[in-house]
């Protein structure tokens, strides 16, 4: 399996406290790679660093063989390195369909830039149709006209995923896509993520170990800012260092 994402020695501290302390991580093309770890291990910081929302103090990120450490978030997104948000981040006052259409429009490589001042955006039918089909794929057909703020929590999470997919990512960074969901909603989201396997490489941060061990091709374990294991699910389950790290963490029975 060829490498799509390669992270080496990534460090970031906040006033003396290391959130990530020299992370090495590889995600292969086509892989669903899960990132787990106790609360406060630095998972979200790592997602911020890989997506470009934060700049690292040391270390390097390469995407598809190209160094991207110095690129801004929007430039990385343009290459296909795209993230979703742990806390739902949508455009609250825009209709759901327009939320996704904006995400579709962001692909300058397919449509040209957004510096088009005269022609109505609605005249680009292909964009709207693509957005509608994405809404359908995440189970939001028929909800397109509702403002995003009026959607239920689970629906907003699905919308968030549709927006991420609309950018046609090559690697999708999924930061706790099931956060705050009920059991049924989580299962539906898990099915959705499973259905994307093979089309899109994914780095999945998730607390629900059932889902992680069911879906992931490979699992990396982040403890106190370091990767302590990176292996196939079965091997990670039996890794003594991982067991030690999780011991006493009652939320996550391995």
């Amino acid at each position: 399996m060829s490498e799509l994402l390669r992270v080496r020695g990534l460090e970031r501290h906040f006033g003396g406290i290391y959130a990530t302390a020299g992370v090495d991580l590889d995600v292969g093309a086509g892989e669903l790679h899960a990132l787990i770890g106790p609360n406060g291990a630095g998972k979200t910081t790592l997602i911020h660093l890989i997506s470009g929302a934060l700049a690292p103090d040391a270390g390097a990120v390469a995407f598809d063989g190209k160094p991207v450490t110095d690129l801004a978030m929007h430039e990385r997104a343009g290459l296909g390195l795209v993230r979703s948000y742990q806390i739902t981040s949508v455009f609250p006052h825009l209709p759901a369909l327009e939320n996704v259409r904006l995400a579709v429009q962001s692909r300058a490589r397919d449509w040209g830039s957004s510096f088009r001042f005269w022609r109505p955006a609605a005249a680009d039918r292909a964009m709207t149709e693509e957005a509608a089909s994405l809404l359908e794929r995440v189970g939001l057909a028929g909800r397109g006209a509702a403002p995003a703020a009026d959607l239920a929590h689970g629906e907003q999470r699905a919308l968030e995923l549709a927006m991420a997919l609309a950018t046609k990512p090559r690697l999708l960074l999924l930061d706790e896509p099931m956060a705050g969901m009920g059991h049924e909603e989580s299962e539906r989201m898990a099915d959705l993520v499973a259905s994307l396997k093979g089309d899109i490489s994914m780095l999945l941060v998730e607390h629900d170990m059932d889902i992680v061990f069911r879906l992931a091709d490979r699992i990396s374990v982040l403890v106190a800012g370091r990767i302590v294991a990176s292996d196939a699910p079965a091997a990670v389950r039996d890794n003594p260092e991982v067991r030690r790290a999780y011991l006493g963490d009652e939320v996550v029975p391995l």
Partner: peptide, 30 residues
């Protein structure tokens, strides 16, 4: 015309959630 154009839609997105627009790959500053 401008409000309904791609540029206008992008501005509406920036007005509501600038960070998200950057994450989507929009050149927000420009």
């Amino acid at each position: 015309r401008l409000a309904a154009s791609r540029f206008g839609s992008a501005l509406a997105g920036i007005r509501q959630n600038e960070t998200r627009m950057e994450a989507l790959g929009y050149p927000v500053f420009g």
